[in-house]
Structure formats: C-alpha cells, structure tokens
Computed example of a mutant assay.
Amino acid sequence: MHTETGVFGRSQELSSRRHEQVVFCEDDKSGLKAIIAIHSTALGPALGGTRFYPYASESAALEDVLRLSWGMTYKAAAAGVNLGGGKAVIIGDPATMKTEELLAAYARFVNTLGGRYITAGDVGTNTDDLDVIGKHTAFVTGRSTAAGGSGDSARLTALGVFHAMRAGAESVWGAPSMAGRTVGVEGVGKVGGELIAMLLADGAEVCATDVNDAALQRISRQHPSVRLLSTVATAPVDIYAPCALGGILTATTAETIEAKLVCGAANNQLATPEVERSLNERGITWVPDFVANAGGLMQVAGELRAADPVAIESDVTAIYDRCRDIITAAQASGIGTGAAANRFAERRLDAIPRTI
C-alpha cells in the first residue's frame, strides 16, 4: 500500500504517470516564491500558465501546481498538440506583490530549465506580465500582439468551451444549440465574460455568479439580461458552467446540482474522481474540463509555431467534434466521460517511447 508523503507521494496519488520535475523558486530581493511543475515532456516541451494566487499555504500551492500540470499533459495530448504538461504558481496576492522585479526573477528561473518548460498566462497573470517575462526568457508564449505574441487567450478558451457545451447539449437534448436553455456561469472573469456573450448570441438565458462583485456589475452593464445570483451550482438551470477555480464539484455539490449538463472553463473541476460517478448516477453529463477548455492552449501552441490564426480558430471549433466523440465512446463503453477522455489522451502518450 502506498504511504509515501510529500512531493513524490502527491505525484503518485494523481496517476501512475509521475511528475518528471518540480522546481521551488525563491528570490529574497523581489519576494518571489514560486513552484514550477513539469509533469511530462513525452510529446514536447511542457507548456502551462503561471498562476499568481494568494494560497493559504505552500502546501496548498504545491497541491494546485501538481494537479494543474498533470491536467496540462492530458489537455495537450487530447488536443492533438505536440507539447507536454507543466504549470507554475507564484505564491502571493498579485494586487500587492506583482512587480517587474518579481516577474523578472521568475523569468530567470524559467530560463534555467532550458526550454523544458514554457510559460503562459493564467489566473493572476496577463499579457502585460508575459511581455515583462519575455524580456528575460524566450520560453514564454501568450504575449501581447505589440510584443509579437497572439494576445489574450480568453476568447478562444471560451470558444472551445462553447463548442464543447454544444456537443454536450446534443447528447443530452438532441440538438447542438443553446436556444431555450438556461446556463449558470460561475466565474465571470475574462473567459466567463466571453462565454456569456457567446451563449446569449446563441439564444441561451444566462444567470451568473462571482465572488468579485465588481466583475458581476460589469457583466450586468454589458449584458442586462443576465440574472445575478448568489450561487448557480444548485440553481434551476439546464447547464452548469464552472469557470472559476477548480475543485468546485464535490460529493456534496454533485448531489444537489439540478443541471443535466456540466461544462465549463475551470481546470480540475472534480474535487475527487469519485464525484464523476455521483454525477453519472444522477444522469448528469460532465464534459471533461481539460478537453473543453483547450482553446487557449491551442492558441499559444499556435503562437509558438507561427500558425495562421484562422487555422487555429478552426482547430478550436473542432473541440465540438472531439467532445462528441468522447461522449459517444463513454456511452458505448459504459464508462464516465472522464475515463473516456483519459483513454483518448493516453493513446497518444503511450505511443511515445519514454526517455526519462
């Protein structure tokens, strides 16, 4: 029985595919405390965003970066891009701690990895930050168009989620349309805001919630028809779209969700794998997050190879087909959509000989 604790133990708890490398970064002068986790480089350099967040503890930050980097491996594999999985977290409040000196120090740590890890944006970081990081390392993507990058990835991330939701709707109700459906969006930041606009344009009724009241008021001004609620997870909606932080789907919430379809942009939505079983038993279809939210990854991966933006958007739109295939495979095999998506990704990973 596995009893190992610490980094190695946590890595094994995620799956049999352990992390290749975890780097702890600290710079006293700037106040930087960061962790970079490289889960896999089997398909290519590990790519993943940098999350700047005031974690309650270093242990919580480690847990998050391990889970997120593992998820990036599967996201890249399922998306068909030749990249591995990695992620980084900077511990602290970006509103008070973020400085050019700190970002430069972080970039220097990224540089020491020699290209095994390529960073991008995430919660708490934006294109301006990536432009600063790009002054100190070449191993960064998602920079502003002025700096030669592809710009913010929120729109394409939302576009992928929208098409994943269409695939889920087709499975549940027989038509890939949001018309007449009520969608509860949890988290109305950049991605959630873009998704709301797409849902409304397709005929959906939308209700929304967020811990940030200013963000909710912005959505209300932009889209007066959106109903603002204290919670949408247990509201009488057809579709629940978690677009904030992960772990929101717990054993408790799985028993109280009224939606028949769960599909959103948040990473690591399931608090534990058992949650999906609870959703299945209640007849709720879950579209795996790492497949649905791969649009941003496709954009920054395209930036790295200087791909045509029109071709990248076409690839993102095809998330609809990938999600439909995964849902169909799950139904045919009598397994959950998460297991079916894992199999889809692992076929690519297993075809590559391990070099480490």
Rank of each mutant, 00 (worst) to 15 (best):
G71H: 03
M178E: 01
S40T: 07
T272Q: 07
V287S: 01
R143Y: 15
E58H: 14
G71Y: 04
L66E: 07
L245R: 01
A307P: 05
Q331T: 13
I219Q: 06
L261T: 02
F162E: 03
E101I: 09
R51H: 11
K33S: 09
K260Q: 06
S16H: 11
T231D: 11
I90F: 01
R181M: 07
T145K: 13
L195W: 08
A254H: 04
N111D: 15
L304N: 12
G121A: 02
R348K: 15
E205W: 12
D202Q: 11
N268Y: 00
G174M: 01
L279P: 08
I248A: 09
T328L: 08
G334C: 02
E276F: 06
V185K: 02
N280L: 15
I118D: 06
D213W: 14
A79Y: 09
L261V: 04
T272M: 10
M178R: 01
T209E: 15
D213G: 15
A179V: 03
V275E: 03
R354V: 12
T317K: 10
V211P: 12
A56D: 13
A254E: 03
A56E: 12
I335Y: 05
T50E: 12
G187I: 06
V275R: 02
S314A: 10
M198S: 07
S57F: 08
V7H: 02
A95M: 11
N111H: 14
G302L: 10
I239K: 00
Y55N: 07
G31S: 12
V81S: 07
P224R: 15
T250G: 08
A294M: 14
E20P: 14
G336P: 03
S314G: 05
V185I: 08
N126G: 07
E58Y: 09
F52W: 03
D308E: 06
